[in-house]
Amino acid sequence: MTLHEMLVSPFADFAFMRRALVGCLALVLGSAPVGLLLVMRRMSLMGDAMSHAVLPGAAVGYLLAGLSLPAMSAGGFVAGVLVALLAGLATRYTEVKEDANFAGFYLLSLALGVLLVSKSGSNVDLMHLLFGSVLAVDDAALLLVASVASITLLVLAAIYRPLLLESLDPVFMRAIGARGGVWHLLFLLLVVMNLVAGFQALGTLMSVGLMMLPAIAARLWAASVGGMLLVALLIASLSAVGGLLLSYHAELPSGPAIILLAGVAYLLSMLLAPRGGLLPRLFRSRHLTN
């Protein structure tokens, strides 16, 4: 097998591979920065919680309109936003902490979702909802992913400063009356949007992987937020391309293949990365005089 056959012809020869490629790369553009901000705000598990929370909405969409992407996406979005809002309100008005509230509401939501799916469809549908099928991405899905990526980048560019400042020093933001809560909520909307966008291609469970794994790995490589963003985008894109090729050649399901590659990048980063990796810690350079 030539290099061309290995890397290029799968995409050159098959339209569904090209669609999958474009879809995944667009997805990466939005979800990698969102993932990085989640990691920096110590909300790494929040993405996971939200991905489960999306399920009942998608199921309701499926019940009403069958296997229709717009209906399922809209349902998923509504359910995700609802859980984010309820958890946010509960955090604000009760003594329960935010992570506990998210756990509470997403579990409720997940149970409801599984109930709805099993009451109405077969287990195959559930598998599809949870794990997606990147090779069946159609025009509508591409459009959705591209729109979400564009909106995400624009909104992040606009709220970048307060969002970062709020992760760094929430008390300061409160003290100067900068209403950190608004930015937080906007950001949670972006999280939900990106999970819903990834849901046709990767499924609700797998799309979190593409969001979080490159972001966690990126923290080990770069010293600045900008640098981390670039590394996260790079790792996520390479995982997407590599995962698609892997699934094509080895006939593996594409979603898990992509996420596994991102996972390998994460493990390698933990071993090798200069900032806090394992090997640099074992083999220290000699210290300076001052």
Binding site: M40, R42, L164, S167, L168, D169, P170, V171, F172, A222, A223, S224, V225, M228
Partner: peptide
Amino acid sequence: QSEIDRSLPV
């Protein structure tokens, strides 16, 4: 006690 997360790359 400032709640500043000093591990952030700032």
